[in-house]
């Protein structure tokens, strides 16, 4: 394996090299040492958005790093084979996908990864899609999102377990800019911050500004939903 002294090239060249690396390369480079982690802060990764997708039924999570039409997919799966949290194995597929196998359960590991991308690369969540999760897991992910950013492009919540689940904190604190799709049972009494209407499940609405909300939920025998329309 040939080597090249990355730390000794001029700053402009160093930045140029980092600009030409894929998010996969930059992520793995940042993992190589503390100094490398500091180095990748000069990369343009912060311009990428992140889609966070967790489906409890599939026991896998996906982080899609994207900018325009270009996407890089990190698929996270869990194994008990590793004893050290943070230890992982990389398997590549088709160039656009990286499978990362971790010790921790998928939602926990997704949170760790998300925090890492935020802290090291200053990246933000663009879209969040959560499905088939228990309340505790959902709460921990919501806490992570609300502590990180005041708005999100798209939010999709589906088949979250338990009746009367309260995601109002998330919806109050994090403004959904583009699409909001909620397909689950919610606590009633949320009229204070939304428009209360009776609709069928999964209806799509578009406001005057072209902002779309696709949402719906059941509350007992009544179909109710709220609509948070962004400015």
């Amino acid at each position: 394996m040939t080597s090249f002294s990355l730390l000794r090239v001029p700053y402009v060249a160093q930045r140029e090299i980092l600009c030409n690396m894929t998010p996969f390369d930059l992520y793995f480079l940042s993992q190589s040492s503390k100094r490398a982690k500091r180095l990748v802060r000069h990369s343009p990764m912060k311009k990428f958005g992140i889609d966070l997708i967790i489906n409890g039924k599939e026991k896998a999570g996906q982080l899609i790093i994207k900018h325009g039409n270009i996407t890089y997919n990190f698929v996270v799966v869990s194994t008990q084979r590793y004893v050290d949290p943070g230890m992982f194995q990389i398997d590549e597929k088709d160039g656009d996908y990286y499978y990362l196998t971790f010790f921790d359960d998928v939602p926990t590991q997704m949170k760790v990864l998300m925090n890492y991308f935020h802290e090291v690369f200053e990246m933000k969540l663009s879209t969040v899609a959560l499905a088939v999760l228990n309340k505790q897991t959902l709460k921990s992910i919501i806490d992570m999102i609300t502590s990180r950013q005041p708005e999100i492009q798209d939010l999709k919540l589906q088949d979250i377990e338990g009746p009367g689940l309260d995601v109002t904190e998330l919806l109050k604190k994090v403004r959904t800019v583009n699409k909001l799709w909620i397909d689950l049972k919610l606590k009633s009494g949320i009229e204070e911050w939304g428009v209360l209407l009776n609709v069928n499940r999964g209806i799509t609405l578009t406001n005057a500004n072209g902002v779309t909300a696709k949402l719906g939920f059941n509350c007992g025998n009544n179909s109710m939903f709220f609509l948070y329309v962004s400015d």
Partner: peptide, 20 residues
């Protein structure tokens, strides 16, 4: 130089780019 990183693990990248 950036292409040298492709498909490498963190440990390999440390060796490729002579990172302590």
């Amino acid at each position: 130089v950036a292409n040298m990183a492709q498909g490498k693990t963190p440990a390999q990248l440390r060796r490729v780019y002579l990172l302590p």
